[in-house]
Amino acid sequence: MPCVGAATLNNPVLKAYYQRLIAMGKEPKVAIIACMRKLISILNTMIARRQKWDPGRYALS
């Protein structure tokens, strides 16, 4: 559930990713699951590298 709010309202990185997936024709639930997977991989990398959240690092280009 936290990913739903992050992907649709609060987090600019996940919000842009979610909107891009929706624009490509993905179902909303599929897009949310993709955002969850992306968030988990980002968080695992941050924990492994002992980093803090930096939205500029994970922004889509």
Score class of each variant (00 low, 15 high):
residue 20 R to D: 10
residue 15 K to D: 06
residue 47 I to N: 05
residue 45 T to H: 08
residue 43 L to P: 01
residue 42 I to D: 00
residue 59 A to S: 09
residue 29 K to H: 12
residue 39 L to W: 06
residue 20 R to K: 13
residue 24 M to S: 12
residue 44 N to S: 11
residue 28 P to D: 03
residue 21 L to D: 00
residue 16 A to I: 05
residue 39 L to E: 07
residue 54 D to I: 01
residue 9 L to P: 00
residue 4 V to Y: 14
residue 30 V to C: 07
residue 59 A to M: 08
residue 13 V to G: 00
residue 3 C to K: 06
residue 33 I to N: 10
residue 15 K to L: 07
residue 41 S to M: 14
residue 41 S to V: 14
residue 38 K to G: 01
residue 29 K to Q: 15
residue 21 L to C: 07
residue 31 A to V: 07
residue 39 L to P: 01
residue 52 K to M: 08
residue 19 Q to E: 14
residue 44 N to G: 11
residue 61 S to N: 15
residue 44 N to E: 13
residue 10 N to G: 11
residue 15 K to N: 12
residue 40 I to T: 12
residue 25 G to L: 03
residue 52 K to G: 11
residue 40 I to Q: 12
residue 40 I to D: 12
residue 7 A to Y: 02
residue 54 D to Q: 06
residue 54 D to E: 05
residue 50 R to C: 10
residue 42 I to Y: 01
residue 48 A to E: 11
residue 23 A to D: 06
residue 54 D to C: 03
residue 59 A to K: 06
residue 60 L to G: 04
residue 32 I to M: 09
residue 9 L to T: 09
residue 14 L to C: 00
residue 58 Y to F: 11
residue 49 R to A: 14
residue 54 D to W: 01
residue 17 Y to C: 04
residue 61 S to P: 15
residue 1 M to Y: 13
residue 13 V to R: 00
residue 32 I to F: 06
residue 27 E to R: 15
residue 23 A to R: 10
residue 53 W to Y: 07
residue 56 G to R: 02
residue 12 P to V: 04
residue 28 P to L: 05
residue 13 V to M: 00
residue 10 N to L: 11
residue 38 K to F: 05
residue 10 N to M: 11
residue 20 R to H: 08
residue 4 V to G: 10
residue 4 V to T: 12
residue 51 Q to Y: 08
residue 25 G to S: 04
residue 20 R to V: 02
residue 57 R to E: 07
residue 31 A to S: 11
residue 27 E to Y: 15
residue 30 V to R: 08
